[in-house]
Each structure stands twice: as C-alpha cells, then as structure tokens.
Simulated scan of single mutants.
Amino acid sequence: MRAGKPPSVWIDDRHAIVRRGMAACLQQSGFVVRGESGGLAPEPNLTGLDVLVFEAEGAALRRAVRLITGSPTKLVATVREPTEQQVREIVDAGVGAVLPHDGLTPEKLVASVRAVVAGAVALPGDLLTRLLAHVVKASNLGPGGLNDRERSVLRLLADGHDTRGIAEDLRFSERTVKNVVHDVLTKLNARTRAQAVALATREGAI
C-alpha cells in the first residue's frame, strides 16, 4: 500500500448478500472496495490491490494463492465450517488471516484486514489449536528452542502487531525485528508468520 492511499480490497464470496455486507463494513472504515466476485469469477484485478478477501472453499485456496503469486497482494480467508485440514492448508499457504463466518462481526473483519495490511497476522485462538501434529513434528521447537526476545516478538505478532508496532513496543529497530522474525521462522521451520504463531501457540511457547 502506498503512503497516503487508503487500503484497497477485493471481496470474494458465493453469496452476494455476504459480499455486500463485508463491503459496507470495510468502506465505512476507510477501505476502498475495488470489486466483488463469487468463486473468484470474474477473476480479481490485482493491479495495486492490497488485500483479497476470499471464501476458502473447494479449490479456491489454490486459485487465490496462484493469483497473487508474484504480486504484493495479501490474502484473508473466510471459512464456513473450518476443519483441521482446511486450517492447516490455509496457514501453510501463507494466508494472513482466517475468519470463520460463525461469529464474524464488522469489528473483527475490519481489525483483521487492517492487521494483514500492516504485515501482521490475525488467527483466532480457537483455530490455532486445530493445526495438525505434522506441523509440530516438522519443526525444531523444543525446550529452550526460542529465546526471550523471540518469544516476545511472537507474542506481539499473535496480538496483531506489525513490524513497526513491535519495534516501538520492544524498543528495537525495525531491522532487528525483521531479523528476529527470520530467525524464528528458521527455528520453527515455518514458511510464514501465521504458521510460526500457530505453531508456537500450540506448543505453549508463547
């Protein structure tokens, strides 16, 4: 997102009433809704788009990831009845936020999209615990595996803080925060911040 520009969003959902509701909430909070689709048809125009909010059903996750490959557009997934496998796949794909339809409020939608725009993650605590054991087995997390600084950064990531917010809270430089995040991802064998937060939460490291 360019400085001074309101964040832009594309909304995808099978149901027009859901799309219109999400669009209204985001527009009232200063977002620019660039378009709507159902089942990613018509295909979203990603030129200059900050966030694609899409319904992660069927093959939509793979299509959404393919669409944004090579672009700075970030993903927010909505799910109707999340399963362990679905949440695992969403997190592994690098999606920045997972929003179950059940219990979704205007406030949660706006806060989650804002967090993703800022480079943070937004994963509800009850969904974090759904990640499968294979993620844990694939990691290098063990007793003493994360130091105090790394755990502090992860806790703030889990709370939705972006790099700048973490730097201000911990009185680090933004470069230091980025380096710590890189080290955490390496230690946890995680590809994304969302996956690192989910794994660390599951293991009780944060």
Rank of each mutant, 00 (worst) to 15 (best):
74 K>T: 03
64 A>V: 10
21 G>L: 08
61 L>K: 01
79 V>Y: 05
203 E>Q: 07
82 P>M: 10
134 H>I: 09
95 V>M: 03
129 T>S: 12
58 G>Y: 14
169 D>T: 13
49 L>P: 02
62 R>D: 14
200 A>P: 05
63 R>C: 13
177 V>F: 10
154 L>S: 04
28 Q>C: 06
59 A>K: 05
148 D>L: 12
57 E>L: 04
37 S>Y: 10
139 S>T: 06
114 R>N: 03
15 H>K: 08
60 A>D: 11
36 E>F: 15
201 T>Q: 10
107 E>C: 14
35 G>H: 14
159 D>S: 15
75 L>Q: 02
93 A>D: 06
50 D>N: 11
164 R>M: 03
168 E>P: 12
83 T>C: 03
178 K>I: 14
181 V>Q: 09
22 M>V: 01
33 V>E: 02
5 K>A: 11
166 I>G: 09
181 V>G: 12
137 K>Y: 14
41 A>D: 15
64 A>I: 05
135 V>A: 12
129 T>V: 11
106 P>W: 15
108 K>L: 01
36 E>P: 12
41 A>L: 15
15 H>L: 15
183 D>R: 14
14 R>K: 06
17 I>G: 02
111 A>K: 03
74 K>D: 02
170 L>R: 04
130 R>P: 04
198 A>T: 00
14 R>S: 02
35 G>S: 02
163 T>W: 06
178 K>C: 14
160 G>C: 04
33 V>K: 09
106 P>S: 13
166 I>E: 04
78 T>K: 08
154 L>V: 07
92 D>R: 07
139 S>D: 09
39 G>K: 08
34 R>I: 15
13 D>M: 01
10 W>V: 05
18 V>S: 08
13 D>N: 13
9 V>T: 04
